[in-house]
Design a binder for these strands. Structure first.
Length: 431
RNA sequence: GGAGAGGUGACCGAGUGGCUGAAGGUACCGGUCUUGAAAACCGGCGUGGGGCAACUCACCGAGGGUUCGAAUCCCUCCCUCUCCGCCA
């Protein structure tokens, strides 16, 4: 959530920013609740103070009946004001949580994803002397993707990913794991992109794939049962990304500046209801209820978070370049970055079978929007404490497999293996 | 799942219903001493909210309750540990 003090000082700015993101929040109402809440808080504190003073005076002596009566009256009064405060505070918090993060200055203002801006196109589009196929046509022909049987077992939007495609999946993950834990590689990425970010390697993590309600809510990533799977008998949700179980790792903790940045490379299965996408991307493995993803998550000091964000995008580009996949870098507009984001970048791979670029990666700069509720803070060398900043970004999901299948396909529905992956597939050059 | 023991500040750890936001120790910071360091000694050292400030309020796993007054008593939940069971 946003800092109420910031909202107090910049009400119009916040109102405008929220609207540019497509959120309707009433900032002036929020501020009047805030005022109301502070008034009640001052009041309740005054009465509590009286109560405390009375109690303090009674430490050694037995209370007189008058003092007990007075104490009882104060107690009732405290409870009464507290009740009023609770009501106001609840409404206040509900509204405050709805206020989205402020987008950075360079985020294009737009009303829908159509106004996202392509900032960069990299790689030669492949040329074929035959009509290129979709990944699902190849997948089906090769026995790599079986959605009929998956539907029988689990319903629509599930798949059996099998054979060489399953192997390729692990090859891609292993490749990313190797590179992102190698400080030399990261240093090279930092240098090549003129960044000042740290070259500290990522720590690989297998995080929990389930998250408690309270914690999930605090990450500002829980979109309700509409979008997220909830376990019926427990206060637990299936995570929709490893980010969701990694960002709350340091809830209620104060990190020492010297530990930063904390960089994690988490792997979990992600579960998504994909509500509101009926009929969209029904073929193949592009949009499933369940997929596996390797995700970057980092905690930095506030001053370093933008560099960290740019670094993560650079890492994503590096990975795509290593796989020799043509891609574009998209700067998402205000309407598309999402509530918690200050800035969001997508990387889209070229898919010759669909004749278009499709999203494979996202990089999110969250600033202190998550950590304010999570209370993840940083203690600086001089003793000052501030909220930590979080960044998250895709390393590899299953979607890059689609890019490999479609870009590396041959006329007989075989798939050449990107050079950097061959050693992970027993030296095979073609599948 | 069954039985038991616990959750106190960065860490260890004391805490009889009021004198405890919390003893004592460690760590850390500053100082004295020392050629330097160690040791010793002195001082300082939680977080968050409100207020221009003085100051004040809250927080001893979380949430309720009892009481004039709760870290301390009661209830619910969460978590950790030990033993048993089950399991990859």
């Amino acid at each position: 959530m946003l800092d109420i003090r910031y909202i107090r000082e910049n009400p119009q700015k916040v109102q405008t920013a929220a609207e540019s993101k497509g959120y309707s929040v009433d900032i002036s109402h929020l501020l009047s609740l805030d005022e109301n809440r502070r008034e009640l808080q001052t009041k309740v504190e005054e009465v509590r103070r009286e109560r405390n003073e009375l109690a303090d005076g009674l430490k050694q002596t037995k209370p007189t009946p008058e003092q007990i009566t007075r104490g009882k009256a104060l107690k009732t009064q405290v409870a009464e004001i507290e009740d009023r405060l609770r009501v106001v505070d609840e409404e206040f918090m509900t509204l405050l949580k709805k206020v989205p993060n402020m987008p950075l200055e360079d985020v294009p203002v737009g009303a829908s994803e159509d106004e996202n801006v392509v900032v960069k196109t990299v790689g030669e589009l492949p040329k074929f002397d035959f009509e290129p196929k979709n990944h699902w046509e190849i997948g089906q022909a090769r026995g790599w993707i079986d959605k009929e049987r998956a539907a029988k077992v689990a319903g629509s939007r599930f798949a059996y990913v099998m054979g060489d495609l399953a192997r390729l999946h692990f090859a891609v993950l292993q490749f990313a794991l190797d590179r992102l834990t190698d400080e030399n590689v990261l240093q090279q990425i930092v240098t090549d992109n003129g960044l000042t970010a740290s070259s500290k390697p990522f720590v690989p993590v297998l995080p929990p794939a389930m998250i408690r309600t309270e914690v999930y809510e605090a990450t500002a990533r829980l979109n309700g049962e509409e979008q997220t799977y909830k376990l019926a008998d427990d206060e637990l949700w299936l995570n929709a990304s490893a980010e969701h179980s990694m960002s709350p790792m340091y809830q209620n903790e104060i990190l020492d500046e010297s530990q930063l940045p904390l960089r994690y490379l988490g792997y979990t299965t992600a579960f998504r209801r994909e509500a509101g996408t009926y009929g969209k991307d029904m073929e193949g493995i592009f949009r499933l209820h369940q997929f596996d993803k390797l995700e970057m998550e980092s905690f930095t000091a506030a001053a370093d978070s933008l560099q960290e964000h740019l670094f993560m995008v650079a890492v994503q580009e590096y990975l795509m370049q290593q796989l020799e996949l043509p891609y574009q870098v998209v700067m998402k507009c205000t309407a598309d970055i999402g509530g918690p984001n200050a800035r969001g970048i997508d990387i889209d791979v070229w898919l010759p079978g669909q004749n278009m670029y499709r999203e494979t990666h996202t990089a999110d700069l969250i600033t202190d929007y998550q950590t304010r509720r999570l209370q993840t803070r940083v203690r600086h060398g001089d003793g000052t404490i501030e909220l930590a900043h979080t960044n998250d970004a895709t390393a590899f999901s299953q979607r890059p497999l689609i890019g490999i299948i479609e870009n590396y396909q041959t006329a007989d529905a075989r798939v050449r293996v990107p050079k950097v992956l061959q050693s992970y597939l027993g030296g095979k050059e073609i599948l």
